[in-house]
Simulated assay, not measured.
Amino acid sequence: MKLCILDRDGTINQDSLDYIKSPQEWEPLPGALEAIARLNHAGWHVVVASNQSGLGRGLFDVTQLNAMHAKMHTLLAAVGGRVDAIFFCPHGPEEKCRCRKPEPGLFEQIAERFGVDLAGVPTVGDSARDLQAGVAVGCEPHLVLTGKAAGLAGRPLPDSYPTGTIVHTDLAAFAQFLLEREGA
């Protein structure tokens, strides 16, 4: 199975320091949905792994989270794409759970649900913690210079990023890289 794991906020959609709390605030990044569709059309299964501590903080509820994801699914379908599953951690950092990235719990859940070993599976995010979680289970780390990483363009990555992190301008550039590598 061709599988890739994506972070949500700052990777697929706009991020906010005040959290994305409603479908109205959930806005896709330019080209991100089309990138997912391109991956799907090439046979890739796309899964989302996302910290959603705003849920645990009471900033929004599960109904609002589901509405955000319904909007994402609808907009993806309109461009011929899909996300196969969404895994999220509702906890804040103070709860020290195993599912909050940079811990690997969400990735372990994905491996179990899909019955796959995640060694070499590409994971894409806009922060070190997104990539650290994936690398802990053997994923290949890919950073997009959107969201939290927007200020890193043209600069060396800080030491907090996993060794071997591959950097892309955005999700569209990641999809192009993956499809070109696959075709080589």
Results as ranks from 00 to 15, higher is better:
residue 69 H to Y: 09
residue 113 R to N: 03
residue 138 G to Y: 02
residue 43 G to L: 06
residue 156 P to L: 09
residue 112 E to P: 00
residue 14 Q to V: 09
residue 156 P to G: 12
residue 160 S to H: 08
residue 175 A to Y: 00
residue 104 P to T: 10
residue 36 I to M: 08
residue 176 Q to C: 11
residue 111 A to M: 05
residue 72 M to P: 03
residue 165 T to V: 07
residue 68 M to D: 13
residue 11 T to W: 05
residue 84 D to F: 08
residue 183 G to M: 11
residue 150 A to G: 04
residue 107 F to T: 10
residue 50 S to T: 15
residue 180 E to R: 04
residue 166 I to G: 09
residue 111 A to V: 05
residue 141 P to T: 09
residue 57 R to S: 06
residue 81 G to Y: 04
residue 112 E to Q: 11
residue 172 A to I: 00
residue 151 G to W: 00
residue 152 L to F: 04
residue 103 E to S: 04
residue 159 D to G: 12
residue 87 F to M: 05
residue 89 C to G: 01
residue 150 A to L: 01
residue 152 L to P: 07
residue 7 D to I: 08
residue 25 E to P: 08
residue 35 A to V: 08
residue 146 T to L: 04
residue 72 M to G: 02
residue 15 D to A: 13
residue 95 E to L: 01
residue 183 G to Q: 15
residue 170 D to P: 14
residue 97 C to P: 09
residue 45 H to C: 01
residue 135 V to H: 03
residue 101 K to S: 06
residue 42 A to D: 09
residue 10 G to R: 08
residue 99 C to Q: 03
residue 177 F to W: 14
residue 62 V to L: 13
residue 56 G to S: 10
residue 50 S to Y: 03
residue 81 G to D: 02
residue 127 S to D: 12
residue 108 E to A: 07
residue 117 D to Q: 11
residue 136 A to F: 04
residue 5 I to A: 11
residue 58 G to H: 01
residue 104 P to I: 10
residue 37 A to C: 09
residue 77 A to G: 13
residue 39 L to N: 07
residue 112 E to R: 07
residue 149 A to K: 01
